[in-house]
Amino acid sequence: MSNGAYARRGHLARVVAAVILMVTLLGLPSGCGALAVGPATAEPPPSGALVLSFIDVGQGGSTLVQSGGESFLIDAGRPEEGPEVVDFLRSRGVEELDGLVVTHPDADHIGGVPEVLGAMPVQEVYVSDRSPGGSLEAAFLEAVEEEEAELTEVGAGDELVWGASEITVLSPPEGGFSEDNDNSVATLIEHGPDPETGRVLLTGDAEARAEEYMSQGPETGPLAVLKVGHHGSSTSTTPLFLSRFRPQVAVISVGEDNGYGHPTPQTLRRLRTVGSEVFRTDEQGDVIVTLHEGELEVAVSGDG
C-alpha cells in the first residue's frame, strides 16, 4: 500500500484531500493557529509524538492511540466495521496491539472488537467493571479467551503507562452510575513535559452524570483534544463539563445522515462558545491528530 492511500471502503479508497491545523500550543491562547493544506499519509508516527486516529466507522467509535512505539485501540465500531478497523490499523503499520479498551458494551463500540482480536495479537484488554452483559459482550469475552489476551477491569483513579504517555482513568467511579452510557471508561492521556499542551480526553458515550463527576475531580484543566461524548448527543458535552476542560480541538465520531440527529445543534453551539475547533468523521472521514514538540496537527482523509 502506498503511503498516500488507504486500502479501505470505496469512498476512502484514496485520500481526496487533507486539512492540517497547525496550532503552536506553547505561548498561544486556546484556539489560535494557522490553517495549512497537506496530504494525509499512512507514515509511521514521528519519534516522540502522540498520534490519535479517530477512525471513520460510521455511527460508532474507534480510536487508535500511538505513543512511544506502542499502539492501543479504544473501541472498534459495529460488527460490520471490524474488517475496516483492521485494515486501518494495518495501514498505520500496526500488526500488534499493546492494549485494547472497550469503553462499554454498546454494539457501535464493542461490535468490531472480536474481528480485531482474531486479526492480530492483543496484549491486554481493558474494560469497566460496570458492564451490563448481553450477547455482544458474550461474543467479545469468548474472543478474549480464545486469543488468550489478559483482561483487566479499570475504574476512576487507575493509572497506566502507554508508551511515552501517562493515562489516568477518570470514570466510572466505584459503584458506577445507573445509566450504561455513563459507565463508559473515560481516559485522560497526558503526553510531553507541559501538561497544558499534551492533554487528551476520550470519554466513550459518557453523558451528563459522568461528565459532572469528572468535572468535580482533580484532573480538570484545558485540553488539547476532546473526543466528544456520545457522538455529539445533547445529553453530553454539557456547559459545566466544557467550562472545566475547555478543549482546543473537538472530534465527533458520528455517522452520516444518522437517525439520531447527532451531533445536535446544542452540542455544536456549546463547542463554538468555548472556542473549540470541531472535526467530524461524517464530514471529513478519518481524523488523525498528532501532538509533537508543542505543536498540534490535524489531518483528515475526506474533503468535507
Rank of each mutant, 00 (worst) to 15 (best):
N258F: 03
H262C: 12
F279Q: 04
Q284R: 10
V254W: 01
L291C: 05
E297W: 14
R272F: 13
H262Q: 10
H262L: 15
V298H: 03
G285S: 04
T290K: 07
L271T: 00
R269H: 11
Y260K: 12
G255T: 01
Y260P: 00
T264H: 10
V278M: 11
G294V: 03
V249F: 08
D282L: 04
T264D: 10
E256F: 15
S276I: 10
E293G: 13
L271G: 02
P263F: 08
H262F: 15
P265H: 09
Q248E: 12
P263R: 08
Q266S: 13
T281Y: 00
V251T: 01
R280P: 04
L296I: 09
E293Q: 15
T281M: 11
E256G: 11
E277H: 15
L296C: 13
E283Q: 14
V251Q: 01
G285N: 05
G285A: 04
I288F: 10
H262D: 08
I252H: 04
G275H: 06
G259N: 12
G261A: 06
V254T: 11
V249S: 07
A250S: 14
T273D: 15
G294R: 04
S253D: 14
I288Y: 12
E283C: 10
Q248I: 05
V254M: 01
T290V: 15
E295R: 15
E297T: 15
V249P: 01
R272L: 13
L291N: 03
L291E: 02
E293W: 07
G261P: 05
E256H: 14
Q248G: 10
R269T: 14
P265V: 09
R272T: 12
H262N: 10
S253L: 12
V289D: 01
L271F: 05
S276D: 05
E297V: 11
A250N: 01
G275K: 07
R280M: 13
V289A: 05
T273M: 14
R280A: 09
G261C: 10
Q266P: 07
G294T: 00
S276W: 10
L291A: 07
G255C: 02
R270L: 07
S276N: 01
R272P: 03
T264C: 11
T267E: 05
D286A: 09
I252V: 15
F279P: 00
G259I: 10
P247E: 09
H292N: 10
V274Y: 03
F279C: 04
T281S: 08
S253N: 13
V278W: 00
G294F: 05
L291G: 04
G255K: 03
G259Y: 09
T264G: 07
N258S: 03
L271N: 00
R272E: 12
F279D: 03
H262T: 08
Q266V: 15
E283D: 14
R280L: 11
Y260N: 13
R270M: 07
T264I: 11
